[in-house]
Amino acid sequence: MTKATDFRTKTADELSDELLSLKKEQFNLRFQKATGQLENTARVRQIRRDVARVKTIQAQKAASAAKAK
C-alpha cells in the first residue's frame, strides 16, 4: 500500500502511469481470483484503494491547476 504523500510528489504523467499499472495488476488479480489461484486476497483491497488514491490526487491537481488559471 502506497501512501498518499508518495503520490502527491509525482507529476501528472507519473500518476497516469501509476494508475495504468495499478489497473493492470487489478485485472490480473481478478483473473487469479476467478481461476482459484489468488493467494493474497487482501491485495485486491489494497489495489482498489490505491487506485482511488491516485484518482483523488489527480482530481485535486486538476482542480488546483484550473483554479490557478
Rank of each mutant, 00 (worst) to 15 (best):
V54D: 03
R8P: 02
N28I: 02
K10T: 08
E18A: 15
D6W: 13
Q46A: 10
R43M: 05
L38K: 04
N28S: 10
K33N: 10
S64V: 08
D17T: 15
T41E: 15
Q60K: 04
Q37K: 14
D50F: 01
A52G: 04
K33I: 07
T35R: 15
G36Q: 07
F31E: 12
R8H: 09
F31S: 09
K10G: 05
A4N: 02
A52K: 09
Q32H: 13
E25I: 00
A62H: 01
K23F: 08
T5H: 07
Q60T: 06
A4H: 05
K33S: 13
V51I: 15
K23W: 04
L20G: 06
F27Y: 13
A52H: 03
T11R: 12
V54R: 02
A63S: 13
K3C: 07
F7A: 12
N28W: 11
T56D: 09
A62E: 10
L29S: 06
D13E: 14
T5N: 05
Q37V: 04
A59G: 03
Q32P: 02
L29D: 00
A4P: 02
A42M: 08
L22P: 00
A59K: 07
V51T: 05
M1Y: 06
D13M: 05
F7S: 06
T5W: 08
K24F: 07
Q60I: 12
K67W: 01
R8Q: 15
D50W: 01
F31T: 11
A34K: 15
A68C: 00
D17R: 13
S16P: 00
T9M: 12
S16T: 10
K69D: 13
R30V: 02
R8S: 10
K33V: 00
K24G: 04
L29E: 05
L38P: 03
L19E: 04
A68V: 02
Q58P: 04
K3P: 07
L38D: 02
Q58M: 15
T35E: 13
L20D: 11
A12H: 08
E18T: 11
L29V: 06
A42E: 13
K61C: 01
A68T: 05
A68I: 05
R43C: 02
A34D: 15
G36N: 04
S64T: 08
Q60R: 07
K24T: 10
R49G: 04
I47M: 02
K3W: 04
A66V: 07
K10H: 07
Q46V: 06
E25R: 09
G36A: 09
F27L: 11
Q37T: 10
R43Y: 01
L38E: 03
D17G: 12
T2Y: 08
D13H: 06
G36L: 08
F27R: 14
N28E: 14
